[in-house]
Design a protein around this nucleic acid. Structure first.
Length: 589
RNA sequence: GGUUCGGUAGCUCAGCUGGAUAGAGCGUCAUCCUUCUAAGAUGAGGGUCAUUGGUUCGAAUCCAAUCCGAAUCACCA
């Protein structure tokens, strides 16, 4: 059991024994003691002072004495400063925690593993992936990994938005301007090729609107009447009617996009157990609308459209079926939730989707609950903020996007230059070098996007390249490589006897012991940044330790064995923490 | 206008279930490689925690109001 948990439970137990008052262990506040005070952990007494009718001084002394008796061999002493009860932990306890720790046993124990679906990535097939997609992909992959490390079974899925007016825009622009060209002809990645026609569509559209306005039409009307816009709408209609030529073109262009996406996904490490295509799912949910009508969850208006009234829940009315009988977005999602539940039978389903859809997911969960679908209560929206440029939002149409492939490549190039200038891997083969550049470049990028709270929007300045120093992926990768380098020299066979721990040795032991709790917290809050912060602090602490104390030339053999073990545990913890972020750590860099 | 989320150092962000003197990184300045990887370490400087009021032993943290910013409130997906 975790020491902090133990302290909380023991405190609650002692207070019950001493005063007959029942407390929940969670009500006990345990902090790491501030460095300027004597002790390792602090219990804040103020909370109980009033309830127990004792002065902090008296309560502290009585509780402190009882705690020492309750946790012999662990607690050695206590002192009271104002309302803070500071406990000192025995040297032996921390020494044993190092001695008994095993590399293969660093993760939390999970007595109730769950089966959880993580749906992420969700690209549109009319344009290539950009920086915002990268945040989504890294978050999705990371949260899936964190849940796995916590002991759960995870199913990663992807829903591809492969139909709709936006695809038709790329298609019609291709018909008009491409002269039958293909990505092979232009030697372009397929998703970029198709994306270029999406941009061309918008250029042509703007020109046509301007022309119509110049000839005397109002802006509003011109936007509706632009020929290319009408062409795209006709194409959508034809697609829905199953027109062979249209479907053919649609399949062809999508296949180019998928080829491009595959390359990118492979590069950045995204993978899925199952990919759903909206062209297959967009008609889902129809029977559920019928069921909902029968259950009186939904109601029909005079024009035969079907609605749900959520005003009682503080939301608005929402349409779930158009008067022409077709589904809307939310209906598809309800249907898909049902389909996924039947297919995988998961306990929970996490949707990694931008915060612009917060309202949508609130409504989705609520409707599913009202329909009493099995999937309903397990729906979680991992909502993340947009990635913005210093100049504001990214817009594909206006070309103000940071392209995912370009950025990844740039990061890899920077790591290559940096690595070459340091010249520490001269014996690497070219394959090994390329792998290292990928590891470091992607590590920097992933860490950069995962180190901040997902729900906050973040600013990315393309003028300043992503850092490789400080609170970054490469810093942690470097620390890992550094430890491995040391261990190659000292060996890893250890035999621990006993010795007094120095402050930095103890600090490392304490930090290492927190790892399982960090993974649990990250899993519960769906927040990989907790892991990023932890791995950074651990790496920083180790570097201080390294600068201060020699491992290979320790002052005694006992110390050397101890420090080698600390190094082994730190490297393994860093490796697992970074893995939780989807980042590999090199043996040498 | 309603709802939701945000505002902490020059910049990017932690801290937010109330606890001791508000923390990191970058940038700036200074110091440390004949000794285990300097992508590192050590130190200095930098703050009306948006504003005002409240709750209390104690507020960056909770509550209210105000100001600023964003998202959303589509028979688009």
């Amino acid at each position: 059991m975790n020491l902090i948990t133990n302290l909380k439970q023991s405190t609650a137990g002692c207070i019950h024994q001493l005063y007959g008052v029942q407390l929940q262990p969670e009500q006990v506040l345990v902090n790491a003691t501030k460095p300027e005070f004597e002790g390792d952990y602090t219990i804040v007494l103020f909370a109980f002072v009033k309830q127990l009718g004792k002065s902090p001084e008296v309560l502290g002394n009585e509780l402190g004495a009882a705690m020492l008796a309750k946790m012999p061999g662990i607690l050695t002493d206590f002192n009271i400063v104002k309302g803070f009860l500071n406990f000192s932990i025995s040297n032996q306890f921390w020494f044993d925690s190092i001695k008994n720790a095993k590399v293969e046993n660093l993760l939390p124990t999970n007595t109730h593993p769950r089966k959880i679906m993580v749906e992420y990535s969700s690209p549109n097939t009319n344009k290539p992936l950009h920086l915002g997609h990268l945040r989504n992909n890294f978050l999705g992959w990371s949260i899936a990994e964190i849940l796995k490390l916590q002991g759960n079974e995870v199913v990663k899925t992807c829903i591809v938005n492969d139909r709709g007016i936006h695809i038709c825009k790329s298609m019609i622009a291709w018909q008009l301007f491409a002269n039958g060209a293909t990505p092979t002809d232009t030697q372009q990645k397929g998703d970029h090729f198709v994306g270029d026609y999406y941009v061309k569509y918008n250029d042509a559209y703007k020109a046509q609107v301007a022309e119509l306005v110049a000839s005397g039409m109002t802006q509003e009307l011109a936007e509706k009447e632009a020929p290319i816009q009408k062409g795209a709408q006709e194409m959508l209609l034809k697609w829905e009617q199953g027109d062979a030529a249209t479907i053919d073109l649609w399949k062809r262009m999508n296949s180019w996009v998928y080829e491009g996406f595959d390359t990118t996904y492979k590069k950045i490490g995204s993978d899925f157990v199952k990919t759903y295509y909206e062209s297959n799912t967009y008609l889902l949910g129809k029977e559920l609308v019928e069921q909902g009508l029968q259950k009186n969850v939904f109601y029909q208006k005079e024009d035969t459209s079907v609605w749900i009234d959520l005003t009682g829940d503080g939301l608005d009315e929402k349409i779930v079926r158009r008067k022409d009988g077709t589904s809307v977005y939310i209906t598809q999602d309800i249907g898909l939730a049902e389909v996924k539940q039947k297919e995988f039978n998961t306990d929970a389903s996490i949707y990694v989707v931008g915060d612009e859809q917060n309202y949508h997911f609130k409504v989705l969960k609520l409707i599913c609950q009202k329909l009493q679908l099995p999937a309903a209560d397990g729906i979680y929206h991992l909502s993340y903020g947009m990635v913005e440029l210093p100049t504001g939002k990214m817009k594909s149409r206006e070309g103000t996007v940071v392209d995912a492939d370009d950025l990844v490549e740039e990061m890899i190039n920077i790591s290559k230059e940096k690595t070459e200038s340091l010249g520490k891997v001269s014996e690497f083969t070219s394959d090994q070098l390329n792998e290292l550049y990928n590891t470091i470049g992607l590590g920097a990028l992933k860490f950069f996007l995962l180190r901040v709270d997902p729900k906050k929007k973040m600013i990315f300045n393309p003028e300043e390249s992503i850092d490789f120093h400080g609170f970054t992926g490469p810093f942690i990768q470097y620390t890992h490589a550094r430890i491995k380098s040391i261990l190659r020299k000292t060996g890893t066979a250890v035999e621990l006897t006993t010795c007094e721990l120095l402050p930095l040795e103890k600090a490392l032991a304490i930090e290492l012991s927190n790892f399982p709790a960090v993974i649990n917290e990250a899993a519960e809050t769906l927040d990989p940044s907790k892991v990023a912060i932890y791995t950074f602090n651990l790496a920083k602490l180790f570097n201080s330790f390294y600068a201060e104390l020699s491992i290979a030339n320790s002052e005694s053999e006992e110390k050397k064995q101890l420090r080698i073990k600390l190094a082994i545990l730190t490297a393994a913890t860093l490796q697992k923490g970074m893995r939780a972020l989807g980042i590999n750590v090199p043996e040498q860099m």
